[in-house]
Design a protein around this nucleic acid. Structure first.
Lengths: 108, 108
DNA sequence: CTTCCATACCTAGCGTTACTAGGCATGGAA
DNA sequence: TTCCATGCCTAGTAACGCTAGGTATGGAAG
């Protein structure tokens, strides 16, 4: 369960440059030391959602001697959204960290 | 959006001792510096779910001169679940931190 | 040569989650 | 007496991520 942070992760995966779906999945897996081994049924619909929302753009490519791929790129709106998502994640994770900290039980 | 971590937070709120729903909501709000200002429609069903799952137990109380409240307590299974959730959160948040780190763009 | 695996894309349908939007009731303060 | 904070509840909804399927090609193994 990616819990609503999948979009941020996918956007971040494309920050370094365009990539296609399958490569993004591999990239997320490696980058998270296999913590996130996402099924295609999770990632492809997310890419479609993000493109629909204008945060990504895509183009079909056929590398020489290879198979057709759909290359995704961050749009400007996508970069901006990524920045927002990073801030949201930071806020969110800090709050959860605080609440789960066992050394500081909350006052009644 | 609590994104699947609500259970962990509620369990943690009860670690210091029994509490009733309304107090738990206030407690989470204060403990998170208002980042999580949860509507009752989020928390009450969660408490019911957690009790149904055996992680919490509840008892009706009526404080002198007060109104009836439902006091929730962590069960043993609840404590164990909390420990699991903490580990899961730690793993999860570290992975996301890594993936969102803008100073280390992932290798293709 | 054929069979299998990795690559590469896709979708329909499902279960869970958290939220909106209501409702009910009481105690104390204005 | 009227309002707010307290205190509990639920039905319905939208979104999300997953399962479980489908299609197809290139290269390696047998």
């Amino acid at each position: 369960m990616l819990k609503g942070h999948l979009d941020a992760i996918v956007l971040a995966a494309l920050e370094a440059g365009p990539a296609h779906g399958y490569a993004i999945i591999e990239s997320i897996k490696r980058g998270s030391a296999s913590t996130f081994d996402l099924p295609e049924g999770t990632v492809y619909p997310a890419l479609h959602r993000l493109e629909e929302a204008g945060l990504l753009s895509s183009a079909w490519m056929t590398p020489p001697g290879g198979r057709r791929r759909r290359l995704y790129s961050l749009t400007k709106a996508g970069s901006a959204a990524l920045a927002d998502r990073r801030k949201a994640w930071s806020r969110f994770s800090q709050a959860v960290d605080t609440l789960l900290d066992e050394d500081r039980p909350w006052p009644a």
